[in-house]
Design a protein around this nucleic acid. Structure first.
Length: 911
RNA sequence: GCCGGGAUGGCGGAAUGGAAGACGCGGCGGACUCAAAAUCCGCUGAGUGAAAGCUCGUGUGGGUUCGAAUCCCACUCCCGGUACCA
């Protein structure tokens, strides 16, 4: 068979490689391990195996890491390149609800489909290392990590997590007290509750995001800006609930600071920093007249002399306490909502505020509203009496839920002050040309007593010092980051391995009883509801009493019925890939140290949508495991790369419903679906836009190598690109042409010459080696493909492929299009596989040319190009330039006023 | 509003201070063919010209420089993130 039969070639080599275990990579100590090679760990974000299978948009990043892995193997590295499945999650469960088919069955089937599809791409994964988060032998260690979190506390002094047993020791020895109380003086129950409150995994009653439609609570990270569920776009309500929490806030500073250790896109680092939201400022204590005190947080303690009123959040617990029966003297009519008593007024305002939907809040355009509480606070700096308001622009969830309002230096406070006729005092002098309201810039302090004249930084330091000396405040840091809500009321997730005793005792399931397997239930249905007040009820409540109840020494314990969120399994899968079948431990330390090295995974490629959720959670778990001595690096992912997306045309009918893009017909720029006119749009390829392209169809028509080349050739890996099936012919032609250059289609003869290339072809060959090597190193696969096109196009004009080109070209092509490269390699009778061949080296002396094209510019415009020896001197170059007729036309023969030479490339004449 | 990224032929893109548009798609012309497909060869930013050439040209306006897609300032539009966070 002499024509390019890509289907036959591709299937045959995939089988052959699998049979030979070509991509198996041994761990240190295992047979075949070569200690002399450098290590590389290249990781893809593993997929959720959906029932729909892969479309051509999914594997864009996978193709990139595969090329990179193949390139580095040829350059002599031990490359760990694994793949697995993030297989817990909603769709399998929803399918189970609809059909009664166990999610395990659905999941296994989907994993099978995905595995088959991924293998069809010819990816060089070590499939022996594949893991699925739903495998009990995998989630056993997810549960084990949870128990590590449960079994540790954060030592703020040492700034790291430590085993809780060490806390107990310190408490018992008197080195440390429990909230100021000596350990010996605490009853047993209080001791237990104190310890439970210190753990990194703890139960707390907190305001949670309750999504009745999904029947579960969600993490902050899973709720969109407009207050809806990230999955499914259902409404989410805030309500207090006792739930499992993970103490990620203890790591807030390290999660910010240690971003400096990793090579990540700056945008992702910024998103993480913003999400953590560190603010440096101060807490101030204000006395409230006739009552207690109130604490406020501010980032601008230097402006305290300009605090002319206070605002507390409507939900603030102090509100009911401080609001008096009657309006005090000095109350303006606009402050009262027209209600007779402050107590009634605050209740009315709070009701109105809580009823306000997110939509209404947007429509309101942030119009300031509020009501006077009737109470006054005393400014600790100048003793001024200032009124206390409630307003919904102050949020209970941030800082202390109360602020000192400084309209002179804060735009929101300014607006509020204008509306409610409150005084405005500037405490920072704006520049003379300043036009506007609140002034946020720097300048000398004014109207601020002993701060006057200081700039903002100095004034902040000075005032914090004063507050601390006088006991009316202190420097404080606050964060937007909240602890991670870890309970889900779902079936298809890891069971949390905790038993609840009769009096609130929390008992971890012993490690040797892990995995704690998911029980079978009759009904997988989450307790979803349209009623926002419905009680969340975990699906595992449907399990038998036999599973739910555990008898220990005659005492009945109840199993925890919540499961873990989907992020749990993906928080640590990169660790398990290193040692996927270890029954004794999460990962063997020497193996972990080898593959992770000093800085973790060498390249992690995935979509930017995980910038906060997955990447923040995984860093958190990794740091805990590092603190406890289970892993050796501070950060899991040394280098991160976000690949772009494949975009494609999508079509909407009259009702705005998406119609299958594959069935839309174009006639003269108009688009129709089943005879109806449809509107063309454009977006990320996927299920929701109904514009997926199935890779199987592309394999049939053009082959795997063509698809891989096409996706890489479309543009740089980190930018999104529009899919266009008809454009694949370009790379397809390249492969056909390559084939015909090497193989006579009539006779099957291998058209390789006995002689190496000479002259221009030889120079081009070595230039191609040089630039393709650099492009590969920099993940510039689009230009690497272009360089191979050029070399191949030159071969079209030759009778036979010169021997050195025949030796090099398949090797350069092998990472990109491994199947055709391997076939040509074998047809030429080369030893071994091209997969394990050495990467070609460039002979630099051949590409160092002895002449160059010198551009001559006159007044900045190119007027002539002259071939010159590379070693030309400035005098020679200028003489040549001036001698050029084309140049003389523009200089008029005059001597240049100025000459700039960048030899041998440019001579620039100014006349 | 704030933060980050971007804008180059009909299209995807290349070029990160020194020849703008590599490479590919599409288009035009030619060879082969009874014909078509495939393949091969040539042309293909705009304007002007018989041609050599000249002028213009990398979102807009300005600047730095002998020289700017590239650096600086101001702006427009697009994409992503975020938002009453004190």
């Amino acid at each position: 068979m002499a024509s390019y039969d890509f289907r036959e070639i591709e299937t045959r080599w995939q089988q052959e490689w699998a049979d030979q275990g070509m991509y198996r990579v041994p761990n240190p100590g295992e047979e075949g391990f070569d200690d002399s090679k450098p290590k590389k760990y290249f990781l893809d974000m593993f997929p959720y195996p959906s029932g729909k299978g892969l479309h051509v948009g999914h594997p864009l990043g996978y193709i990139g890491t595969d090329i990179f892995s193949r390139f580095h193997r040829m350059r002599g590295a031990n490359v760990l390149h694994p793949m697995g499945f993030d297989s817990f999650g909603l769709p399998a469960e929803q399918y189970a609800v609809e059909t009664g088919v166990h999610p395990r069955i659905t999941t296994e089937k989907n994993i099978e489909t995905f595995t088959r599809q991924l293998k069809a791409f010819g990816f060089s994964y070590d499939w022996d290392r594949a893991v699925a988060t739903t495998d009990p032998e995998y989630y056993r260690w997810t549960q084990w990590i949870f128990l590590q979190l449960f079994g540790s506390w954060y030592d703020a002094g040492q700034n790291k997590a430590r085993p809780i047993a060490e806390l107990v020791e310190e408490l018992e020895s008197g080195l440390r007290a429990a909230d100021g109380v000596m350990w010996q003086n605490l009853p047993e129950r209080d001791r237990r509750e104190y310890l439970d409150s210190q753990r990194l995994a703890y139960i707390d009653e907190v305001p949670v995001n309750w999504c009745p439609a999904l029947g579960t609570v969600l993490a902050n990270e899973e709720v969109t800006v407009d207050g809806r569920s990230d999955r499914g776009n259902h409404p989410v309500y805030r309500r207090p609930l006792r739930q499992w929490m993970l103490r990620i806030t203890a790591y807030a500073d390290r999660l910010i600071d240690e971003l400096d250790l990793v090579e990540w896109p700056e945008s992702v680092k910024t998103m993480q920093r913003n999400w953590i939201g560190r603010s440096d400022g101060a807490t101030l204590i204000f006395d409230i007249e006739g009552h207690t005190q109130m604490r406020v947080f501010t980032t601008r303690p230097d402006t305290v002399f300009g605090a002319t009123y206070m605002v507390v959040s409507p939900e603030h617990p102090l509100v009911d306490e401080i609001a008096p029966e009657f309006w005090p003297d000095g109350t303006l009519p606009s402050w009262t909502l027209g209600i007779d008593s402050p107590r009634d007024a605050v209740v009315a305002y709070r009701m109105a505020a809580s009823r306000k939907s997110d939509l209404e809040r947007q429509i309101d355009e942030r119009e300031k509203t509020g009501v006077f509480t009737g109470a006054f606070a005393i400014n600790p700096l100048n003793g001024e009496r200032i009124p206390i308001f409630i307003a919904d622009y102050v949020l209970m969830g941030y800082g202390t839920g109360a602020i000192m309002a400084v309209p002179g230096q804060d735009e929101r406070d300014w607006e509020f002050a204008e509306k409610f006729d409150l005084p405005i005092i500037r405490t920072v002098q704006p520049p003379p040309d300043f036009e506007g309201d609140a002034y946020l810039g720097d300048g000398p302090a004014v109207n601020s007593g002993f701060l006057d004249g200081l700039d903002i930084d100095a004034a902040k330091k000075r005032i914090i010092q004063w507050l601390e000396t006088n006991g009316t405040g202190k420097g404080t840091v606050t964060y937007k980051l909240r602890d991670w809500l870890f309970s889900r009321q779902r079936y298809w997730g890891e069971p949390i391995p905790i038993l609840h005793g009769p009096d609130g005792e929390l008992l971890p399931v012993p490690e040797d009883e892990l995995p704690l397997r998911l029980p079978d239930v009759d009904d997988y249905k989450p307790h979803a509801s349209d009623d926002e007040n419905a009680e969340p009820r975990p699906t595992l409540g449907n399990a038998s009493d036999e599973w739910k109840l555990v008898d220990i020494d005659g005492v009945t314990y109840e199993r925890e019925l919540n499961t873990m969120p989907q992020w749990a399994g993906s928080c640590w899968y990169y660790l398990r890939f290193m040692d996927p079948t270890d029954a004794e431990q999460l990962v063997a330390p020497e193996t972990e140290h080898y593959w992770m090295g000093d800085s973790g995974v060498d390249l992690y490629v995935g979509g930017v949508e995980h910038a906060v959720l997955h990447l923040l959670y995984a860093r958190f778990w990794h740091k805990v495991l590092n603190d406890l001595g289970h892993v050796g690096t501070k950060e899991p992912f040394g280098k991160l790369f976000n690949q772009g997306y494949i975009l494609a045309d999508a079509f909407q009918d009259e009702r705005g419903m998406y119609v299958p893009a594959a069935d839309v017909v174009e006639t003269d720029g108009d688009f129709t679906y089943e005879g109806e006119e449809v509107k063309r749009l454009y977006g990320k390829m996927g299920k929701s836009l109904k514009n997926s392209v199935n890779p199987d169809e592309i394999f049939e028509e053009y082959g795997v190598d063509a698809l891989r080349l096409y996706e890489m050739f479309m543009g740089p890996l980190d930018t999104s690109r529009p899919w266009s099936t008809k454009d694949i012919v370009g790379v397809h032609r390249f492969l056909q042409r390559l084939w015909r250059n090497f193989i006579d289609e009539d006779s099957g003869e291998v058209l390789v010459s006995d002689d190496p290339s000479v002259g221009e072809v030889q120079v081009l060959l070595h230039r191609t080696i040089e630039s393709v090597s650099q492009d590969m190193n920099n993940l510039h696969f689009n230009t690497a493909v272009a360089r191979l096109f050029e070399l191949n196009n030159v071969l079209v004009g030759l009778d036979r492929v010169p021997s050195d080109v025949a030796d090099v070209l398949p090797r350069l092509l092998s990472p990109l299009a491994p199947h055709v490269a391997e076939e040509l390699w074998h047809r030429m009778g080369k030893d071994g596989s091209v997969v394990t061949a050495d990467w070609p080296l460039c002979n630099k002396s051949l590409i160092a040319e002895d002449t160059a094209t010198m551009v001559v510019q006159v007044n900045g415009k190119v007027r002539d190009r002259i071939q010159v020896p590379i070693s030309i001197t400035e005098d020679e170059a200028v003489a040549l330039a001036l001698a050029s007729e084309r140049v003389q036309v523009h200089t008029g023969g005059a001597q240049p006023r100025k000459v700039i030479a960048r030899l041998p490339n440019v001579v620039s004449l100014v006349v």
